[in-house]
Amino acid sequence: MNNMEHIQWIRRSRAGDSRAFAHLYEAYKDLVYRTAYLLLDDPAEAQDALQETFLQAYRALNSYDPRRSAFSTWLYRITVNHCLNRRRARRPLVHLPPAQFESIASPIDLEGEISENLQLQRALEHLSEKLRVVVVLRYFLDLSYAEMAEVLEIPLGTVQSRLNQALQNLRRALQAAKQPGENFGLEEEVSE
């Protein structure tokens, strides 16, 4: 995407030109929507997050400083913050104990890859918010560590340790799922 074009759109949006803002929306809607979907696991909530993110961005456009961060980074920060607030507002999810998890997973076990994907999805859903966010930013949005640090407003070292922790937890969870009866491995998630 052309950066100069973006800056033009931002400038015109600031002046109240909604067509210019429509360009920004078009350029980022899928990335924002999909990020929200990956964080919230719910298409309706993701749609709501998409609206709220752009509404907030429009209101805060005057405080956006192109020299301090890329527009995308700024927009992702709004997206992530909105989604995390949304998740926190939800009632706590009831985590199924390992035995019940196995009983859900077993019938599809015959299907090889589907089962693997399901296991991975379950493992991802069991990651804490903090770890889940770094996984989405890295593997969906392909952000560098520095960009992730900017979006999440945390030090570079914390990004690195969270990503390490997330992969470690995923690996443990996948290994545990392969060995029925064993601990799912999720309690071992270590906070920094």
């Binding site: 991975l120 999805q121 991802l124 996984v135 593997y139 969906f140 992969l167």
Partner: peptide, 9 residues
Amino acid sequence: VRRHIQQRA
């Protein structure tokens, strides 16, 4: 992980 997330998205 990357493949799974991309496919899901």
